[in-house]
Every structure is written in C-alpha cells, then in structure tokens.
C-alpha cells in the first residue's frame, strides 16, 4: 500500500526500473515494440511520487491489481482544458 513520506529539499527518490543499456539498433527496435501499449496486453507497471489528500506518497500501479484503474495523463497543472 502507498506509504506516506515527508518532503525534503529535493524530490524524493523513486526506485525506477533501470533504463536498459543502449543496445544495438535491431534490439532497440524489438524493445520499442515490446513497450507499445496494446489492448488485451498488460499495462506497464510504474512507481511515482504522488500528492493525495494532503500527503505525499509513492504509488505503484501494481498495488492496484484486483481493481479497475483509470489512468489519466494531462499536459500540466494550471492549464485550461
């Protein structure tokens, strides 16, 4: 479950999956295909810092297995649409 953390002077560190080392081009192409989003395929997991009802916490998509999830990306806070 998400754990609250206290903010320091910097954005908290998040353990992200290591960026895969630069691979030869052929392999890079395969990698790109693997990360393409498709319906019927697993949603890529991630962990991110979050603001939620007065608290800061880290949230992973994998914590939500067993529930429907609606993920909504948007260009930026304080934008108009």
């Amino acid at each position: 479950m998400p754990e609250e953390f206290r903010p320091g002077c910097q954005q908290p560190m998040i353990k992200k999956k290591k960026v895969e080392e630069t691979a030869p081009e052929s392999q890079a192409t395969i990698k790109e295909e693997k990360t393409m989003i498709k319906v019927g395929k697993p949603a890529p997991d991630f962990t991110a810092s979050a603001y939620y009802q007065g608290k800061f916490m880290n949230i992973s998509l994998s914590e939500y297995i067993g529930r429907w999830v609606f993920i909504c990306f948007y260009p930026g806070d304080f934008t108009f649409v």
Binding site: I37, A43, P44, F46, C72, V81
Partner: peptide, 30 residues
C-alpha cells in the same frame, strides 16, 4: 518516463498529451 512507456509523452514540448487508459483488475489494458 511513465509517459514514454505509455506512448503519450511529447518529447518536443516536454509534456504528456491527454492519454487515458482503462485497466482491468488483472492489470490488462482494455
């Protein structure tokens, strides 16, 4: 990095476009 995984990151503008994803209880994109 998350936006890139989901194919909705706009590298030129440095922002994420209006992508939305419905994911079922098995973690599958619907």
């Amino acid at each position: 990095s998350i936006g890139k995984m989901y194919g909705i990151y706009d590298e030129d503008a440095g922002v994420e476009t209006r992508g939305r994803f419905i994911i079922d209880p098995d973690g599958i994109v619907q």
